[in-house]
Nucleic acid binder design. Structure first.
Length: 602
DNA sequence: CCCCCCCC
């Protein structure tokens, strides 16, 4: 199949000046001649993967960089050498004497095996371009992660102005400390309270905002006098042109954002509200159902949306670290998954909370805690939106008003904190070796853990016992002249009900262990009652052995109970299975997905 | 220049 590449695209892009925005917004069908990872080390010594693409329009080729949010397309082979794709959106940075094309959005048409046409380098006057050849690494890497560019001397370094007189917009992703003559157009997605500090170096006040455009996010901070000027001016949700702020290295350990830099808002920083906001993205959420919180690790970060079922009164805690009094308020959120969770608001947000009538609230970037099984807590960087204009919000509203308000919800296990919950907890799966190493000290106090292991062997003798058929009795019965006698019920029965008592040898990557399981475990493993299995054993022992054999090599999730006991003067730890769960691969995959989303791009 | 993200 032949593809019509957009002849002339490369030449036009190569010659485009910053004000010619049309060429950046129209689609270009191109072929990728090479995609190469450029391992850039920036000034904070953190490695940033960037992909440089040489793309061809069939006549010429030109170099571009892939926006980092598209990196996964290379990593999962959505795009590769000779891929034909439509570049739907790109942007161009002019950094001093260098020009950089960034691909922001693309759609794959085909994976070709051959190069289309005989593309050549775009002709430039000899003194204006460095030589670039496909498959030859001529990229210059310097301190800026975006310095992997074609050197070109013909472009102006100064801030340019487009036809209609508005400033030409610079992408957030392109900001670096090495170029200060830019204007970004960004939405304020988060604005903090005004915070004050006092330490040995002095005292003052500050606030931060998170700024977002289609290329990325950056945090900006204003101090002292700048707070007075800009705090009232910058409103959450609005879009602004911002220029003349200082670009500093972000201290990674304090930042949740995927940006190496942050902005310092200065006295001379210019902030102008912009009303053309269509192409500036709103907050993007990756909502996790409340039922899935148990699969997220403590201290991970996630987005949730729920109906506020309860609101606590305002209270105050004293921080152990700083001794400061901190206002707090707890919301109880519920959603369609049938779970509820408590979420803590702090500071002004706690004091000023006044939403009524069970609103729907969307939260972004909240912290997962393990209090009461699972809990949520706001960071200063978290966002909270009451009744947002989102599909998920409308759906929750409808559900809650029609039925949700009347139903009951699962709290996230009331077993106070930590790993000792009795139900399976995917976020706290422990390896068998880890379990065995931990020892479980106290003789009579059982400890609970979750594990995932594969059955290696099932003890074939004494796999079941004859039990009393009375509901919930389960006591062993003894044969007594043709009938079966239960001492507890003081009754005799014609036949016992067999119940499993299983010893399983299970293994995972770390080692093996013996687990004891009762009736439910056997029913799950064999898909048969113990009566059925015993009947097979007695009529056809070969088939029984086949069933035992087939039970091996199957993997399950287990909730287990470890308990120290002493038997014949030997003290040992026995591991009992309280619940066994066949693997649901869809559920496992969803849990992995939620885990990825919860840590993605923060 | 902050950088704590808290408590039950």
């Amino acid at each position: 199949m032949a593809f019509q590449l957009t002849a002339g695209s490369c030449e036009r892009l190569d010659n485009a000046t910053p004000s010619e925005e049309d060429v950046f917004n129209e689609p270009h069908t191109v072929q990728f001649l090479s995609i190469k990872k450029v391992n850039t080390v920036n000034a904070s010594s953190s490695a940033v993967d960037r992909y440089r693409i040489i793309m061809s329009d069939g006549i010429h080729f030109i170099q571009a960089m892939l926006a980092t949010q598209l990196n996964s397309m290379v990593q999962d082979n959505t795009i590769g050498k000779n891929t034909v794709a439509v570049i739907e959106k790109l942007t161009c940075n002019y950094v001093q004497e260098k020009r950089l094309i960034i691909i922001l959005s693309l759609r794959v048409l085909a994976h070709s095996t051959e190069k289309i046409g005989e593309p050549k380098q775009v002709e430039s006057p000899p003194d204006q371009a460095t030589s670039v050849t496909p498959n030859t690494d001529t990229i210059q890497t310097s301190a800026s992660p975006l310095s992997n560019v074609i050197t070109k001397h013909s472009k102006p370094a100064e801030q340019v102005t487009s036809k209609d007189g508005r400033p030409s917009v610079y992408p957030i992703e392109g900001l670096s400390p090495y170029q200060n003559n830019w204007t970004i157009k960004a939405r304020v997605t988060q604005k903090s309270d005004i915070k004050t500090w006092s330490n040995q170096r002095g005292e003052g006040k500050l606030f931060n905002v998170t700024l977002m455009d289609e290329t990325g996010e950056i945090r900006a901070t204003g101090f002292n006098l700048v707070v007075d000027e800009l705090y009232p001016k910058l409103e959450e949700g609005k879009v602004y042109y911002i220029s003349k702020a200082r670009v500093n290295l972000a201290k990674k350990k304090f930042s949740n954002l995927a940006n190496d830099y942050e902005l310092s808002l200065e006295r001379n920083t210019e902030v102008v509200e912009c009303h053309e906001t269509a192409n500036v993205p709103m907050i993007k959420y990756s909502f996790v159902p409340l039922s899935a919180l148990q699969d997220l690790a403590k201290d991970s970060v996630c987005d949730v949306i729920g109906v506020v079922k309860e609101v606590s009164a305002l209270s105050e805690i004293t921080s152990k670290a700083t001794n400061r009094q901190i206002p707090k308020r707890e919301l109880t959120l519920v959603d369609k998954s049938g779970f509820s969770v408590r979420l803590t608001l702090w500071g002004k947000q706690a004091e000023q909370y006044n939403a009524e009538d069970s609103p729907v609230i969307a939260f972004k970037g909240v912290k997962v805690g393990d209090f009461g099984g699972r809990s949520l807590s706001m960071f200063s960087s978290s966002t909270m939106h009451v009744n947002p204009h989102l599909e998920e919000c409308f759906a929750l509203r409808g559900w809650y008003d029609s039925s949700g308000a009347e139903q009951s919800f699962h709290a996230h296990s009331s077993a106070g904190g930590g790993a000792s919950t009795m139900s399976f907890n995917r976020a706290e799966i422990r390896s068998l070796d880890d379990v065995k190493q931990s020892g479980f000290g106290l003789p009579d106090k059982p400890e609970y853990f979750s594990t995932r292991a594969t059955i290696m062997h099932i003890k074939a003798d004494n796999i079941s016992y004859p039990a009393c058929p009375t509901q919930n009795c389960n006591k062993k019965v003894v044969e007594d002249g043709g009938t079966w006698r239960c001492e507890k019920c003081e009754k005799s029965f014609e036949a016992p009900e067999h119940r499993y008592i299983m010893s399983l040898a299970v293994a995972d990557a770390s080692g093996q262990a013996w687990l004891q399981g009762f009736n439910e475990v056997g029913v799950t493993i064999f898909g048969k009652t113990a009566n059925e299995l015993i009947a097979i054993k007695e009529s056809n022992s070969a088939q029984y052995n086949v069933l035992l054999h087939k039970a091996n090599c199957n993997t399950y999730n287990f909730s287990c109970r470890a308990k120290q006991d002493t038997y014949n003067e030997n003290t040992r730890i026995r591991y009992g299975i309280s619940r066994i769960y066949p693997l649901d691969y869809k559920e496992e995959a969803m849990a992995l997905r939620d885990l990825l989303y919860s840590s993605w791009a923060r």
